[in-house]
Design a protein around this nucleic acid. Structure first.
Lengths: 191, 191
DNA sequence: CGTTGAACTCTACGCTCGTTGAATTATCGC
DNA sequence: GCGATAATTCAACGAGCGTAGAGTTCAACG
């Protein structure tokens, strides 16, 4: 049982680390997550994380590097009528929050943004890139950007209540329930 | 220049500590705030905070103990027509976020809830007590509680974008702008 | 004016953290 | 098979943290 040195086989430890880190940051945020705790999950020495990613910060960046489509979540909605667009916005957003990697990215950013200016900036850029710009272009009005931001506010609020505060009604509601209640509201912002 | 022992005069150090703690927790959240940093702000030894409040946790609880009216933010809206109620909801909420003590309580809870189950529960109870129950009673429907939660989601989202993410459009918008855009949406949830 | 208790500080303990540098073991190209 | 290089662990550092206990100074009340 060799305790030190390289391991036999070809394990993709690097990916395991990234996955564990993403989960940990999503569950507790940057400050409350220690390199040691991530390392323990992967059964690896903490120093290995530093070796691969340079620092805790580097690991955070690598773990939350984003991979949604080229035009973001809502990039292809221009052609649609407003009611259909609204439904798709809510539906796709909720779907994203149900899927492992993207959900953890969003939650990791949210949970870290509240205590780190750095992460707040990352979240701002993520929201702008993935949601705000395509939403604003859907709204043909001088206050389009503000309206788009309020749509995002509604969506972020839902994530907060569902995953952070764990408010009863929102946790129990089905995605379809939420779509049918929230879509009309989004519609209001879009026109 | 006596460095140790009781100070002359009758300074209300205890209140100063609470105020500084509230500001600190609101700015950085529970985990990222150290007793030592709060103590430094008040020019006091960290041990004094422990002497007064027992522990960091105790200080957190004391600092964020809430003081809104007896019936919460929205307790007196039953009699109103829906459009007026909606405007008041948004207006009062934004006002609360402009005022020192209550804003810091909310932000402190939000910033701490993301990394502590404990604080998340406190925030859930705060939202229930101050907003959800009176809102649900405004909505005469089987899904009233879910609708009320979505109102809260919209409001929390606005606080997130304004104070945490610092999203441009939301930061720059005036309270009146926000009321006139958001109130109709709230109206939609209320009926 | 003396005593008691409250306000306040000092020192220090034990813990956890991020990070470092050297040592060890495996893989891969030649 | 050898040599380079990648993967991995170990032991330790310095710093910051929350907290405990003992000590010091003041105010209040008799």
């Amino acid at each position: 049982m060799s305790r030190t040195g390289r391991r036999p086989g070809a394990p993709d430890t690097r990916e395991d680390i990234l996955a564990a880190a993403r989960r940990a940051f999503a569950a507790r945020g940057y400050e409350a997550t220690s390199l040691r705790s991530i390392a323990k999950q992967v059964h690896v020495d903490p120093a290995l994380l530093v070796h691969y990613f340079g620092s805790k910060d580097g690991l955070f960046l690598a773990a939350l590097e984003v991979t949604i489509g080229p035009s973001g979540l809502f990039g292809d909605l221009d052609a649609l009528e407003v009611p259909e667009a609204a439904e798709l916005i809510v539906g796709r957003y909720l779907l994203m929050l149900d899927q492992e990697p993207t959900r953890d990215v969003v939650l990791g950013l949210v949970r870290s943004a509240v205590s780190s200016e750095r992460a707040a900036t990352m979240l701002r850029e993520f929201l702008t890139k993935e949601m705000l710009t395509s939403l604003s272009s859907l709204i043909d009005r001088p206050d389009g950007q503000l309206r788009a931001s309020l749509v995002v506010a509604q969506l972020i609020g839902i994530a907060m209540l569902r995953h952070v505060v764990r408010s009863d009604a929102v946790v129990r509601a089905s995605n379809d329930d939420l779509v049918s209640l929230v879509a009309p509201v989004i519609e209001g912002y879009l026109r």
